[in-house]
């Protein structure tokens, strides 16, 4: 029996009903293909036994081919690979073009992975900021609350319990095609106000994220990539502080990166 329990808050039903219909039709006709991907990610490398993550994701219209999607989310992953994330997804329908929606992502070894979305929380404007969090329900609990919210009008909350999943490493991720394929595959995301969570007794506390950027293919923090605020020619880099970073279209055609690792912190199954 599944331990999942949904708490879903509906707002703006009337306004979004038409979009929900469009999404439903689009989903029925859309085949999602898992393309070979690069994953740009930042993790809290200094803290691996934490109980939550939160932050803002400013989401910008990406560019990519048909039948694909991009997930931008904050997540927790543990050594078993179990992953729970929350954020926003952009996906492309062959007829309706680019769409987005709030998303919760779950990977559990032995079961598989799920992208969870709701009917009436799509159509987030280009450049808008959403808040996202994944936080343990209670000390030592195996249950996690994943939330994504856009400015009070759209909210997705999903709770999932996974055996043995009581702590993890907080991270934030953007996902794109390989930088060597096509510079038109872009993801102009900006992650900010990142925090991780811990318990002091039964009180939930949080601290600055103290980001460590790692990226499965490459990243660079050289000066020419500090262009994220104008939205061009950036890969993955700190913007203003360790709590804030951006990902974007690649400037590299070769793998000449400062650090080039798979840190093992990527959300599994993505």
């Amino acid at each position: 029996m599944s331990r999942s329990r949904l708490e879903y808050i509906k707002r703006g039903q009337l306004l979004t009903y038409i979009m929900a219909m469009v999404l439903s039709i689009a989903l029925l006709t859309n085949t999602v293909v898992y393309a070979a991907t690069d994953t740009y990610l930042a993790v809290n490398g200094a803290n691996v036994s934490e109980v939550g993550v939160s932050g803002n994701i400013s989401t910008y219209t990406p560019s990519f081919g048909n039948n694909d999607h991009r997930d931008y989310m904050l997540y927790i992953v543990n050594g078993n690979g179990h992953t729970i994330g929350a954020g926003v997804q952009w996906w492309k329908h062959p007829y309706y073009g680019l769409m987005n929606r709030l998303i919760v992502y779950i990977y559990q070894y032995g079961v598989g992975h799920s992208h969870i979305f709701a009917e009436d929380n799509s159509a987030i404007p280009n450049g808008a900021s959403i808040t996202a969090s994944v936080i343990q329900r209670a000390p030592n609990s195996t249950c996690w609350d994943a939330k994504a919210k856009y400015y009070g009008t759209k909210e997705l909350i999903y709770m999932k319990c996974i055996d043995g999943f009581t702590t993890g490493i907080p991270g934030a991720v953007s996902r794109t095609l390989s930088s060597q394929y096509n510079s038109s595959n872009t993801l102009k995301e900006r992650f900010a106000n990142l925090n991780y969570y811990y318990w002091e007794g039964s009180t939930l506390k949080w601290k600055d994220f103290n980001t460590t950027i790692a990226e499965m293919k490459c990243f660079s923090d050289v000066d020419e990539n500090y262009q994220s605020r104008i939205g061009t020619n950036w890969v993955i880099t700190y913007i203003n502080s360790y709590k804030e970073f951006g990902t974007g279209p690649p400037t590299y055609t070769t793998d000449n990166c400062t650090i080039d690792i798979d840190a093992g912190w990527d959300p599994t199954g993505e």
Binding site: Y8, A20, L27, V32, G112, H113, S114, H115, F117, A118
Partner: peptide, 25 residues
């Protein structure tokens, strides 16, 4: 063979699996 699911939360709160695909593990 695990499963990759796309789950839609309907306005009445029910979950609907709108797409499933195999995911070898």
């Amino acid at each position: 063979i695990g499963i990759g699911k796309w789950i839609k939360i309907k306005n009445d709160g029910d979950e609907e699996v709108v797409q499933e695909e195999p995911y070898p593990e």
